[in-house]
Design a protein around this nucleic acid. Structure first.
Ligand code: MN
Ligand code: MN
Ligand code: ZN
Ligand code: ZN
Lengths: 175, 175
DNA sequence: CTCGATAATGAGAGTGATTCTCATTTAGGG
DNA sequence: CCCTAAATGAGAATCACTCTCATTATCGAG
């Protein structure tokens, strides 16, 4: 039952991403160009958490020749029309992920292998709204990321090292 | 009563920050230099959430002449020895804050005036650990920031605008 | 289908926070 | 006081991202 529903929604989803994009472009007087089509295809064809650079590499792999300027511009549009969202996990680059067809969630980030795992906690969401209200804030959005070491990495030397440093870790700078 | 206690702890705190710093430097074979002394003084003399640039301006105000290189290097050391912590609120620059003498907390950030308010929620902390455990993660640290509009800004046109855009807001890029 | 106004694109310059390089000073133990 | 390792400052370098602008492409009107 749940399975059938998800499958159907996913099917609709695939179609709707393009529809939403086109509707948004029309509404804003923007144009549906070849690069934008190609990027939409690449992005919604697969992966869910990616950086601009990873997407750029993916373009090259598939011989889709697009400038970084256009890539960034398209990511901005897709974020504006709520097909993507951007996350700042404190690293160098922002991570983007699909929004359409996905419910809100937060993230666990493995400090050893950079794996990103999603989780949902309605209780946490509730407590956040409560905290905001108590302090007179009108909450608009939030960012919650838990950094740690995933089960797989906890078995490795690298993972153990990260955990150790976790208790009393250095930031370190050269020179 | 509460007042007297805080005052006393603050007095101890002031002393201990220097002690911790000196102990850390000695342990690492680093030197206690004039610039480092001056920065420690400036940082722990007052404000609690600041960017590297704000600290740099403060240096100039007080005729403390220090290069940005040294400033950043010192911030890294202070973060290493757990006197400061760094936060990435998604803006341009990182924010630093005092750790010694402060309990762990998370932040509310006003998108209109950039004010930062602290809050604590043991319940949220508990739920976070629970979520991590369920997914096999060993949590090391986390970052929770709630972005919204503070009570004061909610009265202003700017604040209202931010709240409106919150429901269906643009990312916008020029060109 | 043809045009023309308007938007988009690519290449490369520009940004801004942070880091690095390196020649020149210090700190501090012996 | 001396010596050596560490620190400092000035400016170059990074790096993700944005902007500039000359050259195309889109698409709706005619
Ligand atoms: Mn996600
Ligand atoms: Mn704080
Ligand atoms: Zn991992
Ligand atoms: Zn405010």
């Amino acid at each position: 039952m749940t399975f059938a529903f998800d499958k159907e929604r996913h099917r609709q989803g695939k179609g709707s991403e393009v529809e939403i994009f086109e509707a948004y472009l029309r509404q804003k007087g923007l144009k549906l160009t070849v690069p934008r089509r190609q990027l939409l295809e690449l992005i919604f064809d697969d992966h869910s958490h990616f950086t601009a650079d990873q997407l750029f590499d993916r373009c090259r792999e598939r011989d889709v020749r697009i400038s970084k300027a256009t890539l960034y511009r398209t990511l901005a549009i897709l974020t504006d029309c709520k097909l993507l969202s951007a996350h700042d996990f404190g690293g160098e680059a922002k991570y983007y992920e699909h929004v359409f067809g996905h419910e809100h969630h937060d993230h666990l980030v493995c400090l050893a292998c950079r794996k990103i795992v999603e989780f949902q906690s309605p209780d946490i969401e509730k407590l956040q709204d409560q905290a905001a209200e108590e302090l007179g804030f009108a909450p608009i959005h939030h960012s919650l990321a838990i950094f740690g070491v995933c089960a797989a990495c906890a078995e490795t030397a690298e993972g153990r090292k990260v955990i150790e440093e976790g208790q009393a870790g250095p930031t370190s700078v050269s020179d």
